[in-house]
Design a protein around this nucleic acid. Sequence first.
RNA 1: GUGGCCGUAGCUCAGUUGGUUAGAGCACCUGGUUGUGGUCCAGGAAGUCGCGGGUUCGAAUCCCGUCGGUCACCCCA
Length: 476
Amino acid sequence: MPKIPPPKGTRDLYPLEAARRRWLSERWRRVAIRHGFEEVDGPTFETTDLYAVKSGEGILGELFQAYSGKDPRDIERIRGGEAAPFAMRPEFTPSLARMYAERARTLPSPCKWFQIGPFFRAERPQRGRLREFLQWNVDVLGLEGGFTTEGTENTEAKARMDAELIACCAGFLKEVGLSSDDVKIHVNDRMMLEEVMRESGVPDVQFDPILAHLDRIGKIPKERWEEEAKALGCPVSLIAWISGEVTAPSTMEQRHESMTHAATTSFRSMDMLRSTLFPLLSDHGLDDDWVFQDVRIVRGLAYYTGTVFEVIADGERAVAGGGRYDNLIELFGGPATPAVGFAMGDVGISLLLQDKGLMPSDTELMEEIGARPDVFVISTYEDLDPLATRLLAMLRREGLHARRSYRATRNEKKLLGEASRPPHNARVAIILDSPTQVTVKDLDAAIQQTVDQTVDIGPGFDDLLTLLAQHHAPRP
RNA sequence: GUGGCCGUAGCUCAGUUGGUUAGAGCACCUGGUUGUGGUCCAGGAAGUCGCGGGUUCGAAUCCCGUCGGUCACCCCA
């Protein structure tokens, strides 16, 4: 049989890699739950139309398309250049919007949901970017105490939800040991940019193209970026401002100053972030060292309507991003609902944690995901093997994670070595070297006790369990 | 999807200007040894040199294609 390699941009996860990914997703889940989010999930493939609803072209080309093969008309349509009826999900937001819209009336407000699962994009793979990856999605839908979409009084309520969301994201970063030296949360507000444009007389229809272009700063030569920005009708003052930030980022106060002089409306919007969101973030324990305004952050997606943010490591790599999308739920047939969310992929964050040496050791990893063996049973004589098997069965019935060796050797030293090293790293070894004697050895503490009792009858086994409990490291 | 670089054992890599049966370390398996846990010794298994074609008396080595990885573009939900 010819070798069939895994598809491009996918991964085979061997035990250690699977353990690492499990560890990460457990941390995601733990942090989200701690912050009061509920777990949801949807299908891993959706009707293609679901993804056409919002931003069209950009996404459609990155879809892995799918069809059942049962309906010949599907194949005809695909041959005719149409999209297949289904698509592997490239993101969660459309599914989330649909789910929320479906039950909006009975859901709490705000509705705090998170999701963890695989996503698929038919892009060309690169380091930190695969075609199948795990993603953590966290969203706050609606505002506290009900809401209306219009009115500036909601501005503060929205900011409170923005802050909660960002706090959850930061909570994870802190949870895995990242410091504000490692990562920064760059925050911006699209409204502010739009107001600058509006004041300069830029027509509304140009907003999205200009914002999309602003997002490209730093990715193409500066001069070309400026020229193209001008061509799109972007105000010269805005170009100069953002462009200037690249070479010489200013402090909050300096920006505040310059905005004060630049325009009154812009000032109001600018001041909003400064006076509303950032104090709230500070209440959540996020000060200037963690979070700051960065006018360069725009986010490519057209559906963002207000706050946008990215978690950027070492000033380059973005490991998470999100923002406010107040129009999307309505677009999916739900009641007009302000919402804010972010996503983090497993690939980028894992690379970062590896680089920073923050990925736990193999033993810690197994410990944390509950895969570290409690007991490793060793029998040094063939005659004792049946006893060892009975002992394993009894231990497992007690709910203990018990393993044995499958080696041919009876060399006690080698078997102990095996028990205490990867991939086992057992906590305790039980050594059977006599039918009436059992030795319990704590492999972490390097202490052992020998008991003169057979273990496969009641009293002896109870004593053994007591002994094990004494040597047992508390479970996580 | 477009272009540059890379591709030798599970992993990290050696392989001289193309020249016999392709090597090492780690890991794996077996046996021994050191008083029961990362020592030491001996042995073993493991590679169609990514795959396919071409040049040549002869290709891991040169050429083309292809697959995969990586970097840039694109995109970043």
